[in-house]
Design a protein around this nucleic acid. Sequence first.
DNA 1: AAGTGGTCTAGACCACTCT
DNA 2: GAGTGGTCTAGACCACTTT
Lengths: 259, 259
Amino acid sequence: MIALPDLDPRSGRAVFRQIADGLRDAITSGQLGSGARLPSEAELVERYGTARATVRQALAILATEGLVVAEHGRGVFVRVRPALRRLAADRFSRKHREAGLSAFIAEVTASGHESSVDRLSVTTAPASESVAERLELPAGAQVVVRSRRYLVDGRPVQSAVSYLPADIAGGTAIAEPDPGPGGIYARLEELGHQLERLSESLVARMPVPDEVADLELPPGVPVVGLVRIAYATNGRPVELCETVLAGDSFVLEYELPAR
Amino acid sequence: MIALPDLDPRSGRAVFRQIADGLRDAITSGQLGSGARLPSEAELVERYGTARATVRQALAILATEGLVVAEHGRGVFVRVRPALRRLAADRFSRKHREAGLSAFIAEVTASGHESSVDRLSVTTAPASESVAERLELPAGAQVVVRSRRYLVDGRPVQSAVSYLPADIAGGTAIAEPDPGPGGIYARLEELGHQLERLSESLVARMPVPDEVADLELPPGVPVVGLVRIAYATNGRPVELCETVLAGDSFVLEYELPAR
DNA sequence: AAGTGGTCTAGACCACTCT
DNA sequence: GAGTGGTCTAGACCACTTT
């Protein structure tokens, strides 16, 4: 059993917070390393002489901070943080497309990991109001909808849905499950829609329950909601992509103009 | 008292999760709008015939999801989400500097809100190993350290620490609390350090307790850790800025090269 | 079988807000 | 003072993992 600080009854700080503080210090100081098991609830009850509900409250704090994960029947463990995956500013560069790689696969393969895609579905359907507006399409216009989930070393890290105007993508390889080498951007360019710029906007937030299930997220892990719009050289938006990233798996990199 | 679904004893789902599900539906469906008060714990105990601890567990779920905030003595309320503040891709553009505005103030003022800065401190100190490395300075080199907190309409939304090589910034307006019109980037350019590019990297994560206090974050709100390095035209890094953003207050916008 | 966390009960007392 | 959430106790039974 690791060393833990005594309670300070004069501090006025709630007992469960003091217990959480002690455990947090043990984790951040490295006394409890990544993957280490915390003292069991019973041990903490004994150590501090409190009710079990109180030590559970302490552990719940650490769980929502993303510091620990409980495993039923096994114990509570310091969370192992996945290696951060770079999403680099040049990930949609033409050189990757010309190398025949889609952006995600190029990125992951470069880091020596296994990437895969599942839950792939491709349909054609009328655009929702919000999608039509952002693609600058008339209400109810048909769009090709490509939905998929990305995995690294077998673990889901990202799910994405792309919408493309059906008058561009319909009947092409883009409407097929496998769009071919270089991904849909390579096909768009072959179809004469040279990409001019990509605009991304991001928000960080806590996941909704659906996203927790989809990405198999432990408690205390936020997501990044990312919306990308690809514009062709004529200024027309040719793709809208809505992505949800597991927040603990990515570092996003961008370049900003100084001019 | 709003309508809430009955428990389903055959579902196998924990009672507190079922209660949370019902309340979450009421919130996401709009039945309980932004700022609305939830039924009190006592009312929920009565409604569901469970122990108080059980309804508190349900409410705790919603709190960690960032959906509700409890106010001691008043009730539990649907969280009012602050208006998302755009951090646009051009926020460091020279036109803003030439207009005499720093990036943050330009951004906020454009949206018709009040911005302010507090907890401003400027010191000169030896760089830590990590700072020296990223600024490509020898170990222990002196850096000007500018630390500050940004507020919008009086509420903290961002805290930031900038590090600049003392051989560039020492003894200049950059080492003063008020660096003058256009901010430190305007001063850097006047000193002959034309900015070439800015590189930003971002991660989303749950805040540590210090950050919760600094930014007055309610539970269930992640932060974005943002690191920016500004490079001069000669390729030299001239500023490292480490920023923590309240995740629920910002949407970040970037442009990506398609080439 | 023993040990772990997951769920739930039925209380108690406290601190805060509102009227 | 009445109503609200915040903290804490002392149990109980269950489900899962390990030996």
